[in-house]
Design a protein around this nucleic acid. Sequence first.
DNA 1: GTGAAAGCGCTAACAC
DNA 2: GTGTTAGCGCTTTCAC
Lengths: 324, 324
Amino acid sequence: MARVAEVSVSTVSRAFTVPDMVHPQTRRKVLQAAEELGYQPNRAARGLVTGRTGNIGVVVPDVANPFFSAVLKGCAARARGAQHVVFLADAAEDPRVEAEMVGAMAKQVDGIVLCSPRENSAELHRLVGTSPLVLVNRVEGGLPAVLMDSADGVRQAVEHLAALGHRRIAYLSGPAASWAGEERLGGLRAAAPACDVEAVELGPFPPTFQGGIQATDLALARGVTAVLAFNDLMAIGVLNRLAARGVSVPGQMSVIGFDDIEMASMTTEPLTTVQMPMEAAGRAAVDMLLDDPQPTTELQRWLPTQLIVRSTTAPLPAAPAATR
Amino acid sequence: MARVAEVSVSTVSRAFTVPDMVHPQTRRKVLQAAEELGYQPNRAARGLVTGRTGNIGVVVPDVANPFFSAVLKGCAARARGAQHVVFLADAAEDPRVEAEMVGAMAKQVDGIVLCSPRENSAELHRLVGTSPLVLVNRVEGGLPAVLMDSADGVRQAVEHLAALGHRRIAYLSGPAASWAGEERLGGLRAAAPACDVEAVELGPFPPTFQGGIQATDLALARGVTAVLAFNDLMAIGVLNRLAARGVSVPGQMSVIGFDDIEMASMTTEPLTTVQMPMEAAGRAAVDMLLDDPQPTTELQRWLPTQLIVRSTTAPLPAAPAATR
DNA sequence: GTGAAAGCGCTAACAC
DNA sequence: GTGTTAGCGCTTTCAC
């Protein structure tokens, strides 16, 4: 390459890294030679000497889960904008694999985004030594993190239902160990009394379609007029089971989900849901990893959630006029 | 590291790459020191000298699309099994980005899996020089590829409908440029006459929920008794529109989708669909990239598709007994 | 079985 | 502005 362009290797290097430092004419010569040869600087070799690889790692529990693939998409988009490539690790929901993958990527990336890590506190802190880390959807000690304000989402949902006249609603919780789940529960316990509604906490249930089915019968037995599910998948299960049991939505029962996976708006009854900004979270995480020159910046970045009202929520027929 | 273990760097290297070549006792010493220091060989540096990076690249048009995230998951799983890590590129449905990403990854990977590449033939062949390539869901010149037998899937679907007594069915085509679409059309044109059914080709439509809505009215106007949609997303749109227009499924109209994205089985009417082995395709692609010592192996790997019959297809009420 | 030395492709001083 | 040189962390001859 250097030979073809008739310059030294350093000039080639400079032409790519600090273009203003080489004579415009020389630069042209180099770039043209590169074009002909299809030459591109070897990023791995570059990383070896600069210490910066131009790669960022992303670890998710399951790529096929739309929640995580959305985060991943956000990461990929921002990484590309910053001329970085992303290293993906699918941890298959296994904490050990998670740690192992972080190790494997560590030396090859400038930082790692860990989505909803399943590992325990100690293990997590051990990994920090390996490579800069940013957590998504989990808080842990003093580690930088991107969080979504689930608690506020719950508040919005509860206020919405209360305004519609509902006075007794069920919350269907997801996995017990989930950080987001804790947050939501907290939000619920704060919002319910404030809105003068009674919250019936049910669960934990698996955060799946089946979990929703299972939860529905319990909710029905408790005489609530509205249901707030841990996520959209569960909410869709609820919708299904309610239909099967002849309960009309939103006539007899209002239903709200969480996450807003795309398909939730496509069911026969478009689902009222609390939207989680997953792509934005991915982007924010990469941002924190990359343009954080001074580590004194805010350690946690909170992203707002937003209630999207669709056709599965409606006023209670017997509800008094909203004058109050 | 070498100092801590009190051996030379070469011995450390050997302890990791050719363990049998070092004295068991020395090996223990090295491994133990590595454990203490949390040392792991730098894969990038290793790649520099061996020429093998231990990375494989995967580029998809859109990670958030469940079809591609499934393929990606397959790739990631197999890569991990082969001690490789995957480089992900989300091309954002843009052919130029696709090419650019291939270039960026080329020197850093042992091979690249290109999923449903949007680029033209010439560009694709140009990229081959950069790095070993395996295509998924597209055939192109003499390039190695993993394909799913869509044509056969259509045959199964048509046979199924024919056996149920349907004699006039609509096929809702997706994007005109899609290779898989061409395949399916071919399968349709072969299977329909053979099964004595009349196929009404409609479209192209966008391969989305909306596309399905749009297509439904056309299909209804053509007096068909069954519909075969380009993919599940469209099929769900169809289901929706049919419900809105008061057409009962499967009573008055049978509906079949393609892909089997997970959610298709969760709608109120679980969708009959032709299942595409997306994860398997990802695994196969990585296999072809990695354990292909002799490039004379089969160039194309065909994966079977399978019709999953669920509740959106049923016999035509007026259907004659299947004696014929 | 182990060490010394060369070199993978690149960047970063340091000269000129 | 440009060339020379050292060296990033590793593997791989080639000695011993």
